[in-house]
């Protein structure tokens, strides 16, 4: 029971962080049709900005300043980069974001070096939040979850209850009509791209102290974010939310389960000889296969239900 509760909490807090990260990506995709390969790089820059501003201003101001700064960078990238390559089609846009990811990687190497930086949890949040069955749950993880839930609520309200949100929603499906009604659709795009980048940066600034802030963090999390967007359904915010929690819980629980095919077949009297290739496959535990599972799910999802959990587009 203790194990179940703690593991669920761990999985949820990780899943919520993943949602912060994938929300921006899926918004950008649904609006502009651009799969932003540099999205995880904004996450990394967010973490490094968070670290840098924490040193200059302290943790709490940094939490606000870092995402805003990255949001501005995102808008500049859209305005002076993406918008120019847009007319050359989606392939050009893809390549542009792909190249951007490399540039950001190198820039981070140049500025902060190749080793991890010491981006520490602030003292106020360093300690247990509560204890269940003798296991303590770190306050910082609770804080991470709280930030993600707050942002989720803000995005939802912003998109459904505000004028800008309505324009964004309309521009998702009918950009020409919205433009004809006198709205500046390119500016809406720019804001969305900036907003998405800022969300990724917030995830970085919050996640950096919990995990490791190093130049490999973008490459480590990038693929998972794509899995979430694909599984949740391209362009669906609710789908991304579901998929984030799913992947978060899956990764947390699979690590802890020593189930293997061999163990499943054991009671049936089936066993492979020790040392054979078959035995290696059968004795591979779920825990050891954990890093592979999200991708397995993505492939299955693409085969069975290509539009994802809650996706509406079939293309």
């Amino acid at each position: 029971m203790e194990f179940l509760v703690i593991q669920t909490l761990n999985g949820l807090s990780y899943g919520l962080l993943l949602f912060l990260l994938s929300a921006g990506l899926t918004l950008i995709f649904s609006m502009m049709g651009v799969l932003n390969f540099a999205h995880a790089s904004f996450y990394m820059v967010g973490a490094y900005f968070g670290y840098q501003f924490t040193r200059w201003l302290g943790f709490w101001p940094a939490l606000v300043v870092a995402p805003l700064a990255v949001g501005v960078i995102g808008m500049l990238v859209e305005r002076y980069g993406l918008r120019r390559v847009h007319r050359h089609g989606h392939v050009a846009e893809l390549l542009f974001t792909f190249g951007l990811a490399y540039l950001v990687d190198e820039a981070v190497h140049l500025v902060w070096g190749r080793a991890a930086v010491e981006y520490a949890v602030p003292p106020a949040l360093d300690g247990p939040l509560f204890t269940v069955f003798g296991s303590s749950f770190p306050a910082y993880r609770g804080f991470m979850a709280a930030v993600a839930i707050t942002m989720l609520a803000a995005i939802y309200l912003g998109l459904t209850r505000t004028r800008v949100g309505l324009v964004i929603q309309a521009a998702l499906t009918h950009p020409q009509t919205v433009e004809a009604l006198g709205h500046n659709v390119p500016r809406v795009f720019m804001l969305t791209f900036g907003g998405g980048s800022a969300l990724a940066a917030l995830a970085g600034a919050v996640g950096g102290p919990a995990f490791v802030t190093d130049p490999g963090m973008a490459a480590a999390i990038g693929p998972i974010v794509f899995v979430i967007v694909v599984v949740g359904g391209m362009g669906s915010l609710a789908g991304a939310f579901l998929a984030s929690l799913l992947i978060g819980l899956l990764q947390t629980f699979s690590v802890a389960l020593d189930w293997s095919l061999g163990g499943l077949l054991g009671p049936l009297g089936v066993a492979a000889a020790e040392g054979t290739l078959l035995a290696e496959v059968l004795n591979l535990t779920l825990a050891q296969a954990a890093p592979m599972l999200p991708y397995l799910i993505m492939v299955l999802m693409l085969v069975v239900r290509p539009r994802g959990l809650l996706g509406t587009r079939t293309t």
């Binding site: 194990f3 703690i6 761990n10 999985g11 296991s135 802890a256 890093p291």
Partner: peptide, 23 residues
């Protein structure tokens, strides 16, 4: 009571492993 092998240098969050050790 446990014999875990995790990927080299890939795990950024050991909380799930620790929960398992505890359990």
């Amino acid at each position: 009571v446990g014999d875990d092998l995790h990927p080299l240098g890939q795990v950024k969050d050991f909380a799930p492993y620790v929960a398992k050790i505890k359990a």
